[in-house]
Amino acid sequence: MEKRVTFKGLWLPLLLVLPQIVITAVFFFYPAGQAIWQSLFIPDPFGLSMKYVGLGNFEYLLGNPYYRASFVTTAIFSILVTVVSMGIALYLAVLADRLIKGSGVYRTLLIWPYAVAPAVAGVLWLFMFNTRVGVVSWYLGLLGYDWNHVLNGEEAMGLVVVASAWGRISYNFLFFLAGLQAIPKSVIEAAAIDGARFWTRFRTIVFPLLSPTTFFLLVVNIVYAFFETFGVIHTITSGGPQQSTTILVYKVYADGFVGQDLGSSAAQSVILLFIVGLLTIVQFKFIERRVHY
């Protein structure tokens, strides 16, 4: 049984959670409420007039094939970013966990990319893959491959995925490494004595025991791919070529801050809010059942 501390009365517990409630209300509920309110209007940019349209903004958006296509783009992008960043991070963490000498240096070096802001990471990758002066595109050219993410949608998607996943690998690596080190050595040694090879041990013992970490990272990375990759996309492709890298959150920005269409932008924020809420519920309801704590 869990030990619970119980408070008597109503006021003390309320007072203790008050700061949290205030912060959530001011920084989350208020803006979210504003977004929902604004999504019912078509306002003029200067706030001089607002025209009530009910669910008109949502109808307009969902009736637009380009907006619907943006859902697919977002799904592909988020899955790729999550899989790539978690896969590589896990691989590196497993290697680091087996290191005896120099693991501190190795770890420190791997954490560095996390300190690079997404927009800066975007510029760095863009520079390497620049179609004219990029180092990587030049080598690809020597190999006979004509790299052109300016016109090729798949290459553009690949580039933004790599750039977004890159900084994230460090973060995931840290959690995976901590998770790996928390697994009791005795279990693994016992399995080794029983003759289980590395891969069998990893599959049957390490990975299941790592599942709480993996689950946490899955949730966090998907949220990251949905919301925080804006800077990378903005600097590398601005959503192009055509609409091949226009993810939902980028469209919120483009419509709201470039197009001054605050009604549509607010409606899109509400849709995003809804999707992420739904995703999180699904994750906790269905995937968490398979997680062993």
Binding site: L151, N152, G239, G240, P241, Q242, Q243, A254, D255, V258, G259, Q260, D261
Partner: peptide, 20 residues
Amino acid sequence: SFDQIRGIIDEELEAVWSGD
């Protein structure tokens, strides 16, 4: 909304340049 319309035009022109 001309800034956005230019964005749309950019997208459509890219489709022409790439031959789509």
